[in-house]
């Protein structure tokens, strides 16, 4: 379970995240939506202890992330698939991460198999497509077999087969009783994958509801999203 309590992040005059409070419960996929610049990634970085909140706090299973000594066993995260050293092989990249938390090479081989990269494990990441890097990022999140998982835009760059694979993976991970936070801009995909939705705009909570509730009130999840975020677009093109 992830709990946000009055989480706030200020950069100079700008409030990137403004008093966010909500809980992300285990057992289902929670979709995390919001326009570009709405504070989704900043929120995720604060949950992971990478950015320090200006005020408030984020707790994972009741604890601050930075107080967990072997965090990969509790939390797995994919923030940016491109954030890897291109000169390292997929296997070595994962083993570098695994070793910090005492995870062995057998588990590295296992997750590489699970995400479908076993055949290219010894190749340098530089040559990977975005879709392959997404799979590598998902593999790194799964290494410690954690109960809480967060994915920032994992579907970008994947082929239709990969999109289907991620959808099934997310749902099966949630069905095992894990907490899944998934951010994406693909509404149709979100409607198929998530059960609950959290929408933020300009750093503030706009809506927290189930997909069923939203699609009952609006024609589709996309319509619900567009109607709810209409007032909080940071970068909207003229129409």
């Amino acid at each position: 379970m992830i709990q946000l309590q009055h989480l706030t992040k200020r950069y100079g005059d700008a409030l990137a995240v403004d008093d966010l409070s909500f809980n992300i419960e285990p057992g289902h996929v929670t979709g995390f939506l919001g326009p570009n610049g709405s504070g989704k990634s900043t929120t995720m970085r604060m949950i992971l202890g990478l950015d320090a909140p200006t005020s408030g706090q984020a707790l994972i299973n009741g604890r601050r992330y930075t107080s967990i000594s072997k965090p990969m066993h509790e939390v797995g995260a994919l923030l940016d698939a491109n954030a890897v050293h291109g000169g390292r092989s997929a296997y070595n990249h994962l083993l570098c991460l695994a070793r910090t938390n005492g995870i062995g090479p057998a588990r590295v081989a296992e997750v590489l198999e699970q995400v479908g990269l076993a055949g290219v494990a010894r190749r340098r990441v530089r040559g990977f497509s975005l879709g392959m890097k997404q799979r590598l990022g998902i593999a790194s999140a799964l290494l410690g077999d954690p109960d809480v998982l967060m994915f920032d835009e994992p579907v970008n760059g994947l082929d239709p087969d990969g999109v289907r694979w991620i959808r099934d993976l997310m749902r099966s991970l949630a069905a095992q009783g894990r907490t899944i936070l998934l951010s994406s801009h693909l509404m149709s995909e979100m409607a198929l994958t998530a059960e609950r939705i959290v929408i933020i705009g300009r750093g503030r909570l706009i809506a927290e509801a189930t997909v069923t509730e939203l699609t009952a009130r609006y024609p589709s999840l996309e319509d619900a999203y567009l109607a709810l975020t209409a007032g909080s677009l940071e970068y909207g093109a003229a129409r």
């Binding site: 990478l50 965090p71 938390n101």
Partner: peptide, 12 residues
């Protein structure tokens, strides 16, 4: 490369 964020999530 941005690897620092992954590194610091594994070693907070």
């Amino acid at each position: 490369t941005g690897m620092i964020r992954t590194s610091l999530t594994t070693v907070p």
